[in-house]
Nucleic acid binder design. Structure first.
Lengths: 385, 385
DNA sequence: GATCATTCGTTAGGAGTCCTGACTGAAGGC
DNA sequence: GCCTTCAGTCAGGACTCCTAACGAATGATC
């Protein structure tokens, strides 16, 4: 079922995209190098470059040197032609960056929010950070990504209130909040989704098309890639594992033997008082000391992951988060999968630790920024007679 | 990240695919009608049609009539230019069809296998049906799809032995078996995957991009679509729900309170003696009479589906199978999802009942058959100097 | 320092695809 | 019997891709 109409514009935009992507990933490139990198011919690349230069995405730099023959002129992406915002809203505050077209972070802001966090305070902090970043941006903001530590409806960008949302109970509407602040509609998603993107880009999931990423920290969430594409679900809510059922064999009271993962955490006494956030320090300490309760929790997690492996058949399971990366958890999951029949899934810990959601949001923002020029061609248009 | 190189061949093949798809879906079409249907210009369509005629996919029929002006010549797909095989291997035997390019079933075979089913007997029956179908085919076999009622590795086409596979315990290797019988490599997949395809094509899931299909019969399996694409997993094994954990609140012995869905079925006494197949008649009868055990099972299924809805966020849940379509199960699942917070998933029963996997395999075989001409162009090639 | 090989980027020409607009030819309506 | 209407084709223009060859610039070599 073909979707697009075949037209010459399609070919041209494909060429431009190829060239722009080649220059963006290589950092700087001459026309000839771009030709060999993309597989296009030199004249075609020259034409593309001319278009991209006139639209302002690319700029010519100094001459190359060191080679044997004539020195070519380097092409680089124009970091002032457009910038992107990558922002992470977590339980500890807001972290945001301005990303230039060459992928470098041009500016960054960090703002913490006093506990207890209210939606109003969070929204004000978000707007403040974005306004400040936008004023510091060397070029116009043409794309934005936002990572939120809560279930998010990707279509509306709104935070969804689920029974066991650990962080923001109230409604947050970033799209509406940032309407006049940022000139583009932000792409909002759960932070675990962004973290998995980071892991696929720079971490242990590079090149793996079917991944299950389980994040266990104050909140518990998952993200999935299937067939080389992110698995979002109808509303983008996919990944809620706190409601996954657990069942640990062996002794124990009835309350600790079944129920959702969330109820299990609560029954084991690992919820921070009254709320729905996991007491990470307590879990880690008990896992370190080998306390039975903590081992039970690790076993419950292992069984949840095992069941989801049967459901999704991933090639790789990535474990992350304050207690998800703990050796006891990793070992429990690994043995549970190894003991299960028929599964060929490997288990690894996340490699991108520092602000992983922000890293993923950054690369995605850069992609969206580059795509900006493909969708709305700024170069010479075909005139109509 | 662009993948294909922009070339004029790409445009041409896109045009051909558009035209061929338009004719195939409409049944018969004149050049002018095809032009307006595809959005291409009349000369372009004429060129495409010339190529497709010379390659033999299309044939010219009689003149159109009834219109006001000149009557056009109808174009139809050439049902003898190539055919596809769609075969279903279930616990009751083998059902297979020859599908022509116009989508009609040209020949069909059915062969039952005496119980107990052995891999050898099944393989022989499969080969026999395929050989018989191939000899009856009006054109060369250019594509084949095979639905197997067991976990299947889509890459190798082999049946995977899982701890609780209800049907074929031994190894079955259809690709090797059919090597000399059918001139193409069959696409093998689990029958629930094909059933979901049928449901998306002709049933309740039409146009829905995120679907969770749960099939409860002798075996228990699931299939998923996410973002408009089937979710297969790394090896194509995705959909094993027999290992999903269950937890039913309320009274009951410890054995009936937790464990995998498979263990739960066993503990409730609904497994056919000794094996791993569900006793469908017993479950249905007990559901009809409202027996507590059956209600417990329905509740367990409901909780499993609910948990998977949180994980996958589907727009629609389709229930099928001998006892999956039972009112009690549907009601239990519906209320479980409605009572859960934050979910907006609707629950429906499958509409394609009669040989649903075969129906899905048929449409997929037809798609693969049509794609045959796009991938290996049989028309005029660009000569190399 | 002059010459040569090598490489960069551009120009010229061929092949091919799409489109618009005009043309021929056939069929039905008045 | 003429006219309208529509199907399919032809001709021309615009555009894109490619190969081949051409100036230009640079390092190596004598």
């Amino acid at each position: 079922m073909p979707t697009d109409l075949p037209t010459l514009d399609l070919l041209r935009s494909m060429s431009d995209r190829h060239v722009l992507a080649a220059v963006a990933t290589a950092g700087r490139l001459t026309r000839a190098a771009a030709a060999s990198a993309t597989g296009l011919s030199k004249p075609t690349v020259s034409h593309s470059v001319a278009r991209l230069l006139s639209s302002g995405v690319l700029v010519e730099g100094e001459r190359a040197s060191g080679g044997r023959g004539r020195a070519g002129t380097y092409l680089t992406v124009n970091d002032t032609a457009g910038c992107a915002l990558a922002v992470q809203a977590g339980p500890h505050g807001i972290v945001g960056e301005v990303v230039a077209l060459d992928g470098r972070t041009v500016a960054s802001r960090r703002r913490s929010i006093p506990v207890p966090v209210t939606p109003g305070a969070l929204g004000r902090a978000l707007v403040g950070v974005c306004r400040s970043l936008a004023s510091d941006s060397p070029g116009p903001i043409r794309a934005m990504t936002l990572a939120v530590a809560d279930p998010v409806d990707r279509c509306t960008g709104r935070v969804i209130e689920l029974p066991a949302s650990p962080f923001l109970v109230g409604e947050l509407d970033p799209v509406a909040l940032l309407d006049g602040v940022v000139p583009v509609r932000p792409v909002v998603d759960n932070d675990v989704s962004w973290a998995l993107l980071a892991e696929r880009e720079h971490g242990v999931a590079a090149g793996v098309d079917d991944v299950l990423h389980v994040h266990l920290d104050e909140g518990m969430g998952a993200a999935m890639w299937s067939g080389g594409r992110p698995l979002h679900g109808a509303r983008g809510l996919a990944g809620e594992i706190a409601y996954s059922l657990t069942a640990v064999h062996g002794r124990g009271s009835a309350a600790t033997r079944s129920g959702t993962l969330m109820e299990r955490v609560e029954a084991l006494g690992y919820l921070r008082d009254g709320g729905t956030a996991v007491d990470v320090e307590a879990v880690v300490e008990d896992l370190d000391r080998g306390v039975g309760q903590a081992r039970t929790l690790a076993g419950a997690v292992a069984q949840v992951v095992r069941a989801h492996c049967y459901l999704l058949d991933p090639e790789l399971v990535v474990l992350s988060g304050g207690w998800g990366r703990h050796t006891q958890v990793v070992e429990a999951v690994t043995t549970a999968i190894a003991d299960a029949g028929g599964l060929q899934t490997t288990v690894r810990t996340a490699e991108v630790i520092e602000n992983a959601p922000l890293v993923g949001a950054r690369t995605s923002a850069l992609d969206a920024l580059l795509a900006t020029w493909s969708t709305q061609p700024g170069g010479a248009r075909t005139p109509s007679p």
